[in-house]
Design a protein around this nucleic acid. Structure first.
Length: 601
RNA sequence: CGGGGCGUGGCGCAGCUUGGUAGCGCGGGUGCUUUGGGAGCACUAGGUCGCAGGUUCGAAUCCUGUCGCCCCGACCA
């Protein structure tokens, strides 16, 4: 390809719309343009990158024996109602774009494809003899993200590889899950990415075990906690750790304490010399469900601990009645909300775990009983300081059995950097940021049961299929690669996913010797199967060098002053290493290195 | 949705406080010079100042509403 024909438009200044390096660079180097918030046009250069990533993904998926397919993006609501996800995905904070057709039938644009694929499996998979089987597709997904962000990192329309596997039993599922894990590691390595696998929450997809693949980068949206010995790594949403030890509270019995205006743990502790680990804080939240009543929650945590929203949502979901439908959201209850239910004001800031359900009596729309949960850090305290459920008053030396029946203990706290690890207390958790580029799940039988995807076993009985699902954000991966591979001058693509491998730059194209030699080398490279670019523009050398660096072509061949003697300069983008060599030796010098780099780093 | 910020030629910005001619840099076009790290000079094209109301003799500027975009939180590949 000739640069003059490439519709290449590079920008000198950082676009105002971009914040992080990869987003700025992809815009500046002419890879993409924003069409609307979270919606991007992939320009020809980026499309080549996406095609190369897709090819690697395809090769590795094929190696696992998975079958490529293509499923509809426009999906009937009925399918989603059967899996129980329609309400959760369309109402409230739901992320599914949805619409009605001319007959008034509800349809959704696929944010994911469990429903469609499981319905197909129900239709096609009848016997254990057909199992296991895996299907995958590389396709645009639609998600009405609450906040699109950072270009391709969180788009509302993005390219994803999603795969689904079907099994006769759990052992087979685990085997394929393991094979996918290996395939994913190969994919990210071949794309030149440093990625780590971490334990993850299963989220709205559901299911049991799941693992995320994180590209480490400061711009990452996720916090990863990992042990120094490398044996444990988890998303903070999911991470477990040993909390710091509590300092025992010296108290024989329970006494009230006047605490005027002290409504936070910090205030309380600094005023009276308590340690936060000696206190129990109580949070009042409201869980809203698709079909059911709003459920007030009374959550107790040791004062120094932070509530983990994901763990809480999972705990609440597990305790909700099936008839209530999907959990839509959990949010703190505000003073105004509380009042709007016609209830007497709560002493926020002085709440204790013994707050009676009587406080909820007469609520106009809420359930009149709290769902009471406590983190083990709180339930383990023998005597503690907590609110007295009375304004400006706390209790010192409270004990669970004296105060109120100890609530069910559930892990609700966020693990923090510096915490000791569960697998080896001598290890501590260290934090880093990551971009989630892949996620694999053992779904189990949730969808197959909901959608009636059953098969006949060897013994002749009917059972629901075991399922796994496996996603890679292809467009996100491309941007994550830029986030990991760039410098002050621009992008430094790994060869395996670079839009072009080599750019031939005649320093002065008006010089016939240079122009001719550049053309000749360009032709040779193409003939040798190299993805080559010829910068045939009449720009000055400096402009062409700047653009080549910005666009990030891994190898640059400069045909300049030495052209008369048959000499050219070979420059590696990532390292900046330069060397002069005879033009006749270019291919023999470059091809073996390229061949090696194409395989990934 | 809550909080913060921004909408002015293609891009990046100034002008707005204190109403009165729409400006700068980059980019585009033409010509001459230059030619190995975003060249110089000259000429030139290009703007409903997001949109709609209002105040005013007069609005980019003041007021009201509205739309869009970005950042922080909930969502996730």
């Amino acid at each position: 390809m000739r640069v003059s024909r490439l519709m290449l438009v590079t920008l000198r200044d950082d676009p105002a719309e971009a914040e992080i390096p990869s987003h700025k660079l992809l815009l500046r180097a002419g890879y993409m343009r924003r069409v609307a918030s979270g919606i991007y046009a992939y320009l020809p250069l980026l499309w080549r990158v996406l095609q190369k990533v897709s090819l690697i993904v395809r090769q590795e998926m094929d190696r696992t024996g998975a079958l490529e397919t293509l499923l509809p993006q426009l999906q009937p609501a009925e399918l989603w109602e059967r899996s129980g996800r329609w309400a959760g995905y369309t109402a409230g904070e739901g992320i599914m774009f949805h619409l009605q057709d001319r007959q008034g039938r509800e349809l959704g644009l696929g944010p994911t494809h469990e429903e469609v694929i499981t319905a197909l499996a129900a239709d096609l998979l009848r016997s254990y003899r057909q199992l296991p089987v895996s299907l995958y597709q590389i396709q645009t997904k639609f998600r009405d993200e609450i906040r699109p962000r950072f270009g391709l990192m969180r788009g509302r329309e993005f390219i994803m590889k999603d795969a689904y596997s079907f099994h006769a039993d759990e052992a087979s599922l685990k085997e394929t899950y393991g094979a996918m894990d290996q395939a994913y590691r190969r994919i990210f390595a071949r794309c030149g990415l440093r990625a780590v696998a971490v334990e993850a929450d299963s989220g709205a997809i559901g299911g049991s075990a799941s693992q995320e693949f994180m590209v480490t980068a400061d711009a990452g949206e996720d916090l990863v906690l990992a042990s120094g010995d490398g044996t444990y790594a988890a998303n903070q949403e999911r991470a477990v750790s040993i909390p710091p030890s509590a300092i025992a509270l010296e108290a024989q019995g329970c006494e009230p304490l006047a605490t005027p205006g002290q409504t936070s743990i910090d205030d309380l502790c600094s005023s009276h010399g308590f340690d936060p680990t000696q206190t129990v804080k109580v949070l009042v939240l409201l869980a809203r469900f698709a079909e059911g009543p709003a459920q007030p929650l009374l959550i107790s945590l040791r004062g120094d601990q932070q509530l983990n929203d994901v763990k809480l949502a999972n705990a609440v979901t597990a305790r909700a009645q099936p008839a209530w439908g999907a959990l839509l959201e959990i949010a703190p209850i505000s003073v105004d909300q509380w009042a709007s239910q016609g209830l007497d004001p709560l002493p926020f800031g002085s709440l204790g775990p013994h707050l009676s359900d009587a406080a909820l009596q007469g609520a106009s729309q809420w359930r009149s009983q709290f769902l009471r949960l406590a983190d083990p850090t709180a339930t383990a305290l023998k005597r503690f300081v907590c609110g007295a459920n009375q304004v400006d008053t706390h209790l010192v030396g409270a004990a669970w059995d004296e105060l109120v029946a100890c609530p069910e203990a559930v892990d609700l706290r966020s693990a923090q950097p510096g915490d000791s690890c569960c697998h080896d207390p001598s290890q501590t958790l260290e934090a880093s940021r990551g971009i989630e580029v892949g996620h694999i799940f053992q779904l189990g039988r949730k969808y197959s049961e909901a959608l009636g995807a059953r098969f006949t076993t060897e013994s002749g009985t009917e059972e629901a299929l075991w399922m796994g699902c496996y996603g890679i954000g292809v467009s996100r991966l491309a941007q994550a690669a830029v986030e990991q591979h760039h410098d002050a001058h621009g992008i430094c693509w790994p060869v395996s996913i670079a839009p072009f491998e080599v750019i031939v730059v005649p320093a002065n194209i008006a010089e016939p010797t240079q122009a001719e030699l550049a053309e000749e080398l360009y032709g040779q490279l193409q003939e040798a199967g190299v993805d080559a670019l010829l910068d045939d523009r009449t720009e000055r050398a400096g402009v062409k060098f700047k653009d080549a660096d910005l666009v990030g072509i891994p190898w640059r061949v400069v045909v300049g002053r030495g052209a008369g003697e048959g000499l050219v300069e070979l420059v590696e983008r990532a390292t900046g290493e330069k060397r002069d060599l005879a033009a006749t030796n270019l291919l023999t010098a470059l091809l073996p290195v390229l061949q090696q780099q194409r395989g990934g780093i």
